[in-house]
Design a protein around this nucleic acid. Structure first.
Lengths: 336, 336
DNA sequence: GGGGCATTTTGGAGCGCTACAATTTAGCAC
DNA sequence: GTGCTAAATTGTAGCGCTCCAAAATGCCCC
């Protein structure tokens, strides 16, 4: 009755070989290095493949060759969109080499990070990019070439670290606000590694200019955290004229506070975010933001992994990617 | 020198078996149904596993058992966050049964959807959820139990369809605006399947009330599309008092237009979105939105797949999930 | 203590592919 | 045709696991 024949076994190289009148080994060779096979049989094999709807079994390939041509990317939460640029950067290098990037998220809050990593390793990924906070048990030993992306508290032994220069980025944000002439500046910070660096760089530049800085630190970096931090800041320093938020999401939280208090951006108060996320790029929000160039991090991570797949013994490196300021409409000179 | 010993082969069940003093078969049994193994040896096996840092090879398991305990989820773009609720819904059912959900996105615009699907099938996913527009070649035949989530132009032969009642949701949005007393209503629509249903349901209710409706249809459903559509709408009907956007992102595009024109929301004009996305939930944006309850779609899809994995022959069904209106601050009675 | 039964454990074949050595075929010069 | 080398093709042995029939062990009751 049904047009699908549910009982048809998936075709294998043996089926293809029989149809094409060659040996299974040759089919395998066509799969791997078609150029090493004579024209006649190569074409016979290829047309047999498409006739049968043949699709190689990745499981069998993996088991036999001990590599998967796939790279695992471990992120913390799909909703933190910064990983998208990282992913695209990686893919821009890896796709044409036949590599495939598999994602896993650690279901924030559930401490499932170890489990997520195990899942990827169980799939035999050839290498791993960790773009989340690794658990202690992951630090002791790496099973495959590993690159850590972004600032983390710990880096597994033997892993490379490629990270945005968040410290420098904080400085860039500070220079921008100082350059506009602000002298009453606040900062909304989180408590993770990246936030700490952004805060440190920001503070250094602000204080170097002899300007006082008020910092509201919150536990996380969500919009809600930004809201709470901005509320606290304005309660204590209502005369603040510029705010640097640890990320764009927190900046939006600050917007909610400013809106509720009738303050206009950037007329009454300037706001600068971080990440240059889709949020910042929104035509409506249009947030001045520091772009940490995660795509470049991704590209670097990919090159690093490829090198390490070639030769696992190479020495781990630490690479810093320079951030870039993206000017938009939420920062201006302070009202006279 | 290095603490990692790069040349240590991953341990296998044979290594575990030797250390525990049992046969490899028994190790396999411990992996699958520990309750069927005597206490003494089970514990011996388990401690041997942790001592060696043993991790089963998914490739071998897959190859031998012909199932992966994993479900593929095909989405179009990681940035369209509606998939997150779908994913979480699926996981809420599947996780405790030991299933794992693997994502693949089709890199919008590149028509890589077929390739992404092939990638998942090559990994031997036990079932597939398609939450993107399938390509023609995917419609002819399904290789594994398949559920299509959301409205699509085509549904593969033999696949189930579980979808939000976008038509009904359009009606809900209309009822809300009509109930508030609006009589000059515009709609920003896209051209995909979901948009068409939302539009149809909205129009039906609006026209049933004898109210005239102006529709601005654009190609996509991005913020930019929303911006363009809203501009067009207000150029032609500056007296509009309420706008229904086909999704929250387009609503934000509309906000940008309204802001530029000095119109206040909801004072001068009400805006209602769709999806109840993180955008709508933002404290700053706080958009009244129709929630299509993708988590429920995910739960239903999971149940459906499990049933179909049991018995692939069951008849395909179509299920409709009722939407829910979420009231927030962007809609109000029209100014008198 | 032995027979009968359920429970626990083991051996061995095989999943679909790759790797590599061995074999066949082709190509060319004489 | 012969001899030689290079290119094309094949056979065979796994990769790490599951599955299932067969063997070993444990347990109860007469």
């Amino acid at each position: 009755m049904s047009a699908t024949s549910p009982k048809t076994r998936r075709p294998t190289i043996y089926d293809v070989a029989k149809l094409a009148g060659v040996s299974p080994s040759l089919v395998s060779l066509v799969l791997q290095s078609p150029e090493r096979v004579g024209d006649k049989r190569r074409q016979a094999v290829q047309s047999a493949m498409s006739e049968l709807g043949y699709r190689p079994s990745r499981a069998a390939t993996t088991l036999a060759s001990n590599r998967t041509k796939s790279i695992g990317l471990l992120i913390d939460d799909y909703r933190n969109l910064w990983f998208v640029d990282l992913l695209r950067g990686m893919e821009s290098v890896l796709s044409e080499l036949g590599y495939h990037v598999t994602l896993a998220d650690s279901q924030p809050g559930e401490n499932r990070i170890k489990e997520a990593a195990d899942g990827l390793l169980a799939m035999h990924v050839d290498a791993l990019v960790i773009a989340a906070e690794p658990s202690d048990s992951m630090l002791a030993r790496t099973w495959v070439p590993t690159v850590v992306a972004g600032w983390r508290k710990g880096v597994p032994v033997g892993a490379d670290l490629i990270t945005n220069d968040d410290d420098g980025g904080g400085g860039v944000a500070a220079d921008h606000l100082l350059g506009l002439g602000h002298t009453r500046i606040g900062h909304l910070s989180g408590s993770d590694g990246a936030s700490a660096h952004r805060r440190a760089g920001f503070r250094r530049q602000i204080q170097a200019a002899g300007v006082e800085l008020l910092i509201a630190e919150s536990k996380g970096t969500s919009e809600e955290d930004g809201y709470a931090a901005a509320s606290w800041l304005l309660d204590h320093h209502p005369d603040t004229t510029a705010i640097f938020a640890a990320n764009d999401t927190m900046a939006v939280g600050a917007f909610a506070v400013l809106k509720a208090r009738g303050l206009r951006v950037p007329g009454d108060i300037s706001v600068i975010g971080y990440d240059n996320s889709p949020l910042a790029k929104s035509r409506y929000l249009d947030i001045t933001s520091v772009d940490n160039r995660s795509d470049v991090v991704g590209i670097n991570a990919a090159h690093r992994l490829l090198a390490r797949i070639e030769d696992p013994a190479i020495k781990p490196e630490r690479t810093l990617i320079d951030p870039v300021l993206v000017l938009r409409s939420t920062t201006a000179r302070p009202a006279p």
